[in-house]
Design a protein around this nucleic acid. Structure first.
Lengths: 97, 97
DNA sequence: TTGATAGGTAAGTCGTGACTTGCCTATGGT
DNA sequence: ACCATAGGCAAGTCACGACTTACCTATCAA
């Protein structure tokens, strides 16, 4: 659902996760955890990140593929390309005022 | 602050308000209240809308100008033009900002 | 000045979302 | 087989955000 994208983007930790996936696609849960700790100083539990990934996935911003005991997460920017243009009046005027 | 834009967009009522301002700029608080009731069936108190407008304004999505006892609200799409392109890899695709 | 209109301030309720702790399942290496 | 790794499930805590009720301020018209 497109409306879930806004809710998914509302949390700063989830935005960091998207930042991580932009930088390197196909990371596992543990990789994302490690990167958030080392690069952003975020001391979150594995389950917290897992729940964030579930939110991102249900919003369509992340797609996951399972391989053995690994689950790789890939970014899907498709929903993003629609949300911000919702209020941009590209036909009539140039976003002025 | 740019990070507040995401939080401002997280609430569906605030998105409706932005929809209203896209359709007709420069509405007062009471006009927005009336429109949300009649067009969207949203039965919210005036204060609720007022608080939503305050959030939108602090996020830079709405600017207000006072004229006598009226306060007109205008949409400002400038913050929107940046947020969604954050995760769009502009090097591979064009995705104009 | 009085009263109606437009808006602001403040406190309080209530649900939801973020996070944790604890335990369980599954895959792979040795 | 074992055990460590990768991940899932569920309940519980806690804070914040959305909304309400109640009251106060300001502007304009008669």
């Amino acid at each position: 659902m497109a409306e879930d994208v806004f809710k998914a983007l509302a949390d700063p930790t989830r935005r960091r996760i998207l930042d991580e996936l932009v930088e390197r696609d196909g990371q596992t849960l543990f990789e994302i955890c490690a990167r958030l700790v080392t690069k952003h100083g975020l001391g979150l539990s594995r389950q917290a990140i897992s729940q964030h990934l579930a939110v991102l996935e249900s919003a369509g911003l992340v797609v996951s593929r399972r391989q053995g005991r690994y689950k790789f997460h890939d970014l899907n920017t498709e929903p993003l390309e629609r949300i911000a243009t919702r209020w941009l009046r590209t036909d009539t005027s140039e976003s002025a005022q």
